[in-house]
Amino acid sequence: MKQVVLQMEALTCPSCIKKIEGALGKMDGVEQAKVLFNSGKVKARFDERKINAEEIERTVTKLGYPVLSKKMSQSAH
């Protein structure tokens, strides 16, 4: 299990949260997706055998949110 944190531009609409979390949640291999609205971050825990961080990044970008940077870490769970 790995975790990726994507830094985006500042989010302004709270409805973006549902949009992003919903879309990532539907992806196969994404265990948990959380949007930190105020810091403009997406945290996603995923199974690296099923999906990679680039695919997650692409989905977020396709939804209309440019990704500024990403950071990977081994998830504790």
């Binding site: 549902k18 919903g22 939804l63």
Partner: peptide, 15 residues
């Protein structure tokens, strides 16, 4: 309109 369309594609209702 673009944002509205992107949201609609995710089945989200937006302003």
């Amino acid at each position: 309109a673009l944002k509205a369309f992107q949201a609609l594609r995710m089945k989200a209702f937006s302003i």
